[in-house]
Every structure is written in structure tokens, then in C-alpha cells.
Design a protein around this nucleic acid. Structure first.
Length: 456
RNA sequence: GCCCUCGUAGCUCAAUGGAUAGAGCAACUUCCUUCUAAGAAGAAGAUGGAGGUUCGAUUCCUCCCGAGGGCACCA
């Protein structure tokens, strides 16, 4: 707000000086009459204490009263920090995207953390946000799991754990046993056809169990999805879209499959419908875009996935651009990095587990209890520790996750922030109890406040 | 082979083309405690390499070295 006013006058980029003793804002101007004019105008502003020229920089110092005023607002205004920057822009954000019949692993946990954080940022800035989760409920991984369910004779008492075992059995058999592999491929087609009552019963059972399990994790993490999408549905729509695109010459038939030749756009060729006549993820995603828009006509659609499919998304967005240019313009893909757990990865794999979100959250909770045995809500602290560790570095980069540092009450960690917040709150409450609240009057200088903080 | 990321202090991360490249952790010095756990102050420490553009480059361009990912029927 104050920066905006300054910005108007200086015209060029406004920045903060390296050294705060020089001023609160600074701007680089070329010497000359223009600079003098700018300085003169700045000096006329009521909240400006001084304006000084140092080399090519003009340093602006604001009055102390401005800051004490600001602090008073931060404390009293519960809406502080929010804005209406995005007006009532409609934003759909897709993230997490786990696959039923499989584990929700730490990569999904990262996606969820990033997606939820971005969602909240948009919300805090005035956007209407809808959270979407897109889940692979068809495909080879499902066939493997169902094959495993049949082999392990899993009945009504299927659990998330036994489902994981079923998938593992199917995946192993697929690799080691060519007979089983053939059965699984056949099963996959049957699942797409959805005609066998016996198979579909197992399918529904497993899917429901998976989704319930995911739901528990979302609750734990504090995410609630507005839209749940499934590949089984987007696949049908995707087939239609590809069919249309084939007519328009966007796609080509090649070796029994339907492909998009991306080379002419500096991209690569990808398969949209395989030679078995089944839609690949590409076709499904293409079908998803118009479906999402029909459900919630968005101004912006954000899709968050692991960055290993960045190139794939470039191809996909090009196709979308050729078929639905208005949707393509509103679509933004964000690729996040991998989560690496040096040390812990070995520990987990020795137990024969994939690194699941649940496992990591449980570990964090355990560690919190080791440090603070009397913590009132160790799980919340553990969740904060994990989330903060994931958000503290750039989204596109891989994360070196160090669980001990993440749960530490010192340094750059979630628990440190929670702890500090709790302490300041308790100090403020105590000050209020002693009638010291009124100390934050507008004339109070920042120096006094800084001193107070140290005393506290 | 081609395409995309990335390379900053011992480690993990910052830095819309701007001033002396910032933090946290670890290590170091000093102090306080000294039964542990911990606490306070201070100093030290970095842009992978070579060119180029620019008044000015961690940032943009070229080449080299190194790491990761992707390149047709998985997502």
C-alpha cells in the first residue's frame, strides 16, 4: 500500500536497501534533473522521514510512527495480510492425485502440501478456490491389484494394508511370471469394459477402501477436496476428444495407436490411444480439462504434479491449445521435485515398505514425542514439521528431507514457528493481564518495540 | 544422441540485472552454568570452470565440467 504510493512517484523498481540503516526503501535512478524532481516529490509525502542520495541510489526512510501504526494493525486486524488481489477470480487447483489400490506415498504428500499451500494463498488473496483431486482408478496398476486380490482371496474384509499386499503380489507376478502378466493384461481390458460382475465387485470393494484410507490422510493434513475426478470417467471423454482431434488432423494413426507428433513444435511424439484401443493418461488428461471447466468455469486451472512429467505436460498443453485454446490459456502446470530421505529411505525399504505418507507422519510424531513428551498435540506438530520442511525450499527442486531437523525446535522448522507463535501469544496475554496492552500506541517508535521484544 | 531442470559456506536453503551474496544447522573462540539438558556473545566460512552482453551478472547468452529428469503405447 505504502509501496504503491512510492512506486507511483519513482516509476521504476522499488527495492529494500541492503543495509536497513540506509533507509526503508530504495530506488536506483540515473543522475540528472529527473532524479532531483523525484526526490522533491518524495520529501513532500507525510509518512516519509527523509530522502537521501547515495551514488546511484535514492534511499527513503519512513517515519517511526508509520511502523508503530503498522504493528498495531497487524495485532488488531485479523484480516491483515489478506488482499483482494485476485478479485473473485475462479481458480481450480488439482493436486495430490494418488491412485486407488496403491499407497499414498511421500511424493503425494509433497504434492498435497504444495497444493494446499497454493490454494490457501489464492484464497487469502480473494480468489474463489476449488480443490480437485484426480485419481487413477483404471490401468495396469489396478489390474495388478485386482489380480492380487483374487490370488490372496481377499473378501469383504479388505483393508488398506491387505490391498497394498495384493498390489505387491500382482506387481511381482507381472515381472516374474509371463503367464500371470498375460492374465493381468487381460484383466485390465475387462476392467475397462466393466462387464464382469465378479471382477467389478472386487473393484468397487478395493476402490472404496482406498478412498476411505486417503480421506483419513487428507483430514490429518487439513485438506478437503471439492471435486474428485477419476480416470475411468475422464478416459471416456478423452476418447471423444481424441476422436475429434483425429478429424481435425491434430492426431495421427501410427502403428495401430493414435499419436500426437510434437516434433514440429519442438516437442516429442506421444501416444494418446494405445494399439489396444485404450486411452493413455494423455487422452484422459485431455478429457479432464473440459470436464473441469463444465463443473467450475475457471479463470485459472493449476495442475500440480511431480516434475518428472514436465515434458509430457508441455506436449499435453500444446494439444490442448490446438483443441481448446481458451482452456489452454488458463491452464498452468507446476512440477514439484522429489522427496529424498537420506538415511531413512534405507530404514524403510529394509522393512519392505514403500515410503508412505502415513509412515512419514507417524515417524515425525514419534520424534516430536521424544523431544517433547508432554506435547498436547504431537501429531499437529509432526504434520507442521513435515509441511514446513517441504515448503521451505523452491517447489521445482528436490527436497533433502532430514526428519531430525524438521522436528527440531530450533532453526528453520515448523515446530520452531509454532513454538515462537505460542510464546508470543502467551506473552501478549500476560501483558494484557497486567494492563500493558495499551503500550502499543501510535507514537511508540520501532526501536522501543525492538527493545520490548528482547525483554520478552 | 536430443530436450528440460539444477550446480551458492562443511550441510540444508535464500538473494524481481543492483550497494558489503543473506539465513539456519554444524564446527570454532569466549562467557555463564557445570548433575544432566541447555543458554549468551563473537569471529570465520561460498557463487563448478572459461568467455561474452551490461555502468553493474548468482541472475541473461555461448562453450566446457558435474548431478538429476524426460525422449511412443506406465503415469
Amino acid at each position: 500500500m505504502i509501496a504503491n504510493e512510492l512506486q507511483k512517484i519513482v516509476g521504476t523498481k522499488l527495492e529494500h536497501p541492503e543495509n536497513e540503516n540506509w533507509g526503508d526503501y530504495a530506488v536506483f535512478v540515473k543522475p540528472g534533473a529527473e532524479a532531483d524532481e523525484v526526490i522533491k516529490k518524495l520529501r513532500e509525502l507525510e509518512f516519509v522521514e527523509s530522502v537521501a542520495r547515495t551514488g546511484g541510489f535514492v534511499n527513503i526512510k519512513l517515519k517511526d510512527a508509520y511502523f508503530s501504526n503498522l504493528i498495531a494493525r497487524v495485532i488488531t486486524d485479523s484480516e491483515w495480510g489478506k488482499s483482494s488481489m485476485f478479485g473473485d477470480k475462479r481458480v481450480m487447483i488439482e493436486f495430490t492425485d494418488p491412485n486407488p489400490f496403491k499407497e499414498l506415498h511421500i511424493g503425494h504428500l509433497y504434492s498435497n502440501t504444495v497444493g494446499e499451500a497454493i490454494s490457501r494463498l489464492f484464497e487469502a488473496n480473494g480468489a474463489v478456490v476449488k480443490r480437485a483431486c484426480y485419481q487413477g482408478d483404471v490401468g495396469m496398476h489396478v489390474a495388478k491389484a485386482i489380480w492380487g486380490m483374487m490370488r490372496l482371496k481377499l473378501g469383504k474384509n479388505v483393508t488398506a494394508k491387505s490391498l497394498g499386499e495384493a498390489y505387491a503380489a500382482g506387481a511381482t507376478a507381472f515381472e516374474d511370471n509371463s503367464e500371470a502378466a498375460a492374465e493381468i493384461k487381460e484383466l485390465n481390458i475387462k476392467l475397462y469394459e466393466a462387464k464382469s460382475a465378479e471382477i467389478m465387485k472386487l473393484y468397487e470393494l478395493g476402490k472404496r477402501e482406498s478412498l476411505m484410507y486417503f480421506d483419513g490422510i487428507y483430514k490429518r493434513l487439513g485438506t478437503k477436496f471439492d471435486f474428485m475426478y477419476f480416470e475411468s470417467e475422464s478416459g471416456k471423454k478423452g476418447m471423444q476428444v481424441v476422436e475429434e482431434g483425429l478429424g481435425k488432423g491434430v492426431f495421427k494413426k501410427s502403428e495401430g495407436a493414435v499419436v500426437f507428433e510434437g516434433e514440429k513444435y519442438g516437442l516429442h511424439t506421444r501416444v494418446f490411444v494405445n494399439s489396444q484401443g485404450l486411452p493413455t493418461y494423455e487422452a484422459k488428461e485431455l478429457g479432464l480439462a473440459p470436464t473441469k471447466f463444465a463443473d467450475f468455469p475457471y479463470d485459472l486451472s493449476v495442475i500440480i504434479t511431480a516434475n518428472e512429467i514436465n515434458d509430457y505436460f508441455r506436449v499435453l498443453l500444446k494439444c490442448l491449445d490446438l483443441l481448446y485454446p481458451d482452456l489452454a490459456k488458463r491452464t498452468k502446470h507446476i512440477g514439484h521435485g522429489m522427496v529424498k530421505l537420506p538415511g531413512m529411505a534405507k530404514m524403510a525399504s529394509r522393512k519392505g515398505n514403500v515410503l508412505t505418507a502415513e509412515w512419514l507422519l507417524d515417524e515425525a510424531k514419534k520424534k516430536v514425542l521424544e523431544i517433547a513428551p508432554d506435547a498436547t498435540d504431537p501429531d499437529a506438530v509432526g504434520v507442521a514439521a513435515v509441511k514446513y520442511a517441504m515448503l521451505r525450499s523452491g517447489i521445482g527442486r528436490d527436497i533433502e528431507f532430514d526428519i531430525d531437523k524438521s522436528v527440531s525446535f530450533e532453526g528453520s522448522s515448523g515446530p520452531y514457528i509454532q513454538y515462537t507463535f505460542a510464546r508470543t501469544q502467551s506473552v501478549l496475554a500476560r501483558a494484557k493481564g497486567q494492563g500493558l496492552g495499551a503500550k502499543f500506541d501510535l507514537a511508540l517508535s520501532t526501536k522501543h518495540l525492538a527493545l520490548n521484544e528482547e525483554e520478552l
